[in-house]
Design a protein around this nucleic acid. Structure first.
Lengths: 207, 207
DNA sequence: ATCTGTGAACCGGTTCACAGCC
DNA sequence: GGCTGTGAACCGGTTCACAGAT
C-alpha cells in the first residue's frame, strides 16, 4: 500500500462521519455523490480516495453503507481501542477529558496529569489527576498510544520529549509553541490562534 | 492582489508566531532560513510566500524583525481588534472564553450565549451568559465579526443560519457536524475526532 | 560572502472522461 | 440507466536555481 496523502486521511475521516450519518438516517446504500455532498468534496474525489484501499462499491448501485463504515473504521485503525493520556489539567484539559467524542470513537482516556499541587488528587469522574512527576512511572503501566498536550507553551517541548522517551508515538498538541517532534513521533497541532488569524485574513480581504 | 492559497495563510500565521519568538529572544533581524526553521518549512517557501505581498527583506541581510512582524500583522488583518461572540457555554465554550490567546491576538470576546436556564445569568469574569433567544437582539448592538460555535452538533446548523442572518461572516466551528455555510460566510472547523483519527491512521500504518 | 526576490521546472493531488459492471 | 474504478490530463502549490542587491 503506497503512502497516503494527508488531505486524503482528513477526507476519510469525514467519509466515516458521513456514512454514519447516512446509517442513522436509515440509508442502506450510499453513492460517491452522496458522500461528496455530506463531506463537502466531489464524487470523483471520493472514488479516487476509496480506490486507494480497495474496491468497496458496486457499479450501478453504490456502496453498502454498513460495509463501507466497517472498511473505513478498519482503514483508519479504529477497530481497536486506543489508550490516551492527557497532560495538563487546566480548562482545556478538563474540557477534553470529558469530551464525549473520545469514547464514541474508541479513544479511552486512561490518565490525566498536572504539576499544580492544587489540582493533583482532584477527581474528574472516574479519573484522578496525577502529579506530572509520576508521568514515567504511570506510563509504564498505562502504556498509552496517544498523548494530548494541554500544557502552557513553555512546558510543551519538555513534556513532549518525556512522552517520546516513554514510548508515546502520537501526540495531539494544543499548545501554541512550535514543537520539534522527536524521531518517530507524529505530532498534530490544534491552534486556535492560527484559525482565528485565518478568519481575520479572509475578513480583511473580502470586506 | 491575487487570490492566496489556504496553506499560505496558515504559514503566514506561523511566520508571525516565529518572528514574535525571535523578537522576544532579542533578534533584530531574521532570515528566511530562520523563519523556515521556526515554522517548519523551507527558506524558499518563506520567501515565495512573503513575496506575494511585497519585498520586505534586504538582500544579504534578511528581514527586520519588528518591521516584518508589523507587515504580517497587517497582512493578516490584525491591526484592528475583532469582536467575537461565543455560542455555547458548555465545557468547551468555557475553556475558550477564558483562553488568553484571544486577547493576546486582538480578539475581544464580547458575549457568550447558551440555551440552558441553569447557565444563563452566570458570570464568567466580566461576561454574563446570555439566553440564546436574545441572540439577534444582542448582536444588533455587539455587531461581532466572528462567532465561535461551541454547541452540540444537532444545534449547530440552526445557530449558524441565525448568525449569518445577523450579519456574521466568519465562524469557528467546534461542533462535529458537517455544516452547510450560508453564502458569504466562511466557516473553519476544529474537529478533535478527525485529528485523533488521523493519529490512529498513522499509528496503524507504521506500527 | 550573504541573503532576498522570482521566473522556470517540477511534482503530486485533483479533475476528467470513459470503460466496466450491475 | 446508473454508478464505480481508474488511467490520463490538468493544475497549482512547491522547489530549484540564479540574478540582483548589500
Amino acid at each position: 500500500v503506497p503512502a497516503v496523502a494527508e488531505p486524503t486521511v482528513r477526507r476519510l475521516s469525514r467519509y466515516l462521519q458521513a456514512v454514519e450519518d447516512a446509517l442513522r438516517s436509515g440509508d442502506r446504500t450510499v453513492s460517491s455523490g452522496d458522500l461528496a455532498r455530506l463531506a463537502d468534496t466531489t464524487a470523483a474525489q471520493v472514488r479516487k480516495d476509496l480506490s486507494q484501499f480497495g474496491s468497496f462499491g458496486t457499479r450501478g448501485v453504490g456502496y453498502d453503507a454498513r460495509m463501507l463504515r466497517d472498511q473505513l473504521r478498519n482503514i483508519l485503525g479504529l477497530k481497536r481501542a486506543w489508550q490516551v493520556v492527557i497532560v495538563g489539567a487546566g480548562k482545556i484539559g478538563a474540557a477534553l477529558a470529558q469530551y464525549p467524542g473520545f469514547a464514541e470513537h474508541g479513544f479511552h482516556v486512561a490518565a490525566v496529569f498536572d504539576c499544580d499541587p492544587a489540582k493533583v488528587g482532584n477527581r474528574w469522574g472516574r479519573l484522578t489527576v496525577c502529579d506530572v512527576t509520576e508521568l514515567e512511572a504511570r506510563l509504564r503501566t498505562v502504556r498509552p498510544d496517544i498523548a494530548v498536550l494541554a500544557v502552557p507553551s513553555p512546558a510543551a517541548q519538555g513534556i513532549l520529549d518525556r512522552l517520546a522517551d516513554a514510548g508515546v508515538r502520537a501526540v495531539l498538541n494544543f499548545a501554541s509553541a512550535p514543537l520539534r517532534p522527536p524521531p518517530g513521533v507524529e505530532v498534530r497541532h490544534v491552534n486556535m490562534a492560527h484559525e482565528l488569524e485565518a478568519l481575520s485574513f479572509s475578513l480583511t480581504r473580502q470586506g
